[in-house]
Design a protein around this nucleic acid. Structure first.
Length: 260
DNA sequence: ATTCTCACA
DNA sequence: TGTGAGCA
């Protein structure tokens, strides 16, 4: 009985395709022990070891061409370096996935939050938050693609963030993105009157703002900060023809009878 | 069942 | 860097 195996047996043994084994041969990294009279490639235990090494190096991101060099000339130390490099890549990928996981959780949470609280007025407690200035815009201008394209370098994955439109009453609106540490400026912590809703037409937004001011008046809230409009465009996944906005401003409650 | 080649992502 | 189809 022969000790060698055919290409399909080797393929099954190593969980790869027959094609792939021949491809490795074409690239000069794995040769059969010998070729049988019928032109069939025959492989022995030595090729099994070799193939497992090749597959490991492929997993580490080494190209088939480089595998040639590796297996013929690499020192133990060079392999250590290679492994270290590969480890860093895996760490980076892991970080990428963690961030994606975090984003998915955030979207789920925000969507839940929106369903339960849309079109209700609320008081929200906010800690001090920091922002980076992104675009300065005139209040009657609309955000357009050109404007975005000119600024695109400054922010990756644009519509996965909460975009804050901050209006201090003057004619310019500042578009901002929240930052973790101190950025261009900050909003003070405190109680914010808040309302969120789904907007289909531009004028609905104006109405929404008016409604919130009216409500604040009836409740005798004193507005002490700028108007903050938060756009969560990723939530439009759930309701195709609208944009999700939250409106906020800092209030002092006159009803609580604070001195002066 | 295996080989080769070619087109295709 | 492979895969799938068609052929001998």
């Amino acid at each position: 009985m022969k000790s060698e195996i055919t290409i399909s047996e080797l393929a099954k043994l190593m969980n790869v395709s027959v094609h792939q084994i021949r491809y490795f041969e074409e690239k000069g990294v794995l040769w059969p022990a010998y070729t049988d009279n019928n032109q069939y490639r025959m492989y022995d235990i030595e090729q099994v070891y070799q193939l497992s090494h090749i597959l490991l190096l492929r997993k580490l991101g080494v190209s088939v061409q480089s595998i040639n060099d590796c297996m013929t000339s690499y020192s133990a130390d060079q392999y250590r370096q290679l492994l270290h490099h590969s480890l860093r890549e895996v760490d980076a990928e892991l970080l990428r996935l963690k961030e994606l996981q975090h984003f998915i959780k955030k979207v789920l949470h925000e969507q839940q939050n929106f369903n339960s609280q849309s079109n209700h007025y609320q008081i929200k407690r906010r800690d001090t938050t920091y922002f980076a200035r992104w675009i300065e815009m005139d209040s009657h201008n609309k955000l357009n693609a050109k404007l975005l394209a000119e600024q695109a370098k400054r922010v990756p994955n644009l519509f996965e963030s909460d975009i804050h439109y901050i209006s201090d009453g003057s004619s310019t609106i500042t578009l901002c993105l929240e930052t973790q540490g101190p950025g261009d400026f900050s909003l003070p912590g405190g109680n914010y009157l808040s309302m969120q809703s789904l907007i289909h037409e531009d004028d609905e937004l104006e109405q929404m703002i008016e409604q919130l001011y009216d409500y604040a008046a009836t409740q005798s809230y004193t507005i002490t900060g700028p108007l903050i409009l938060i756009e969560r465009s990723y939530l439009s996944l759930f309701s195709k023809n609208g944009l999700h906005y939250e409106l906020q401003f800092l209030i002092e409650s006159a009803a609580k009878g604070e001195p002066s």
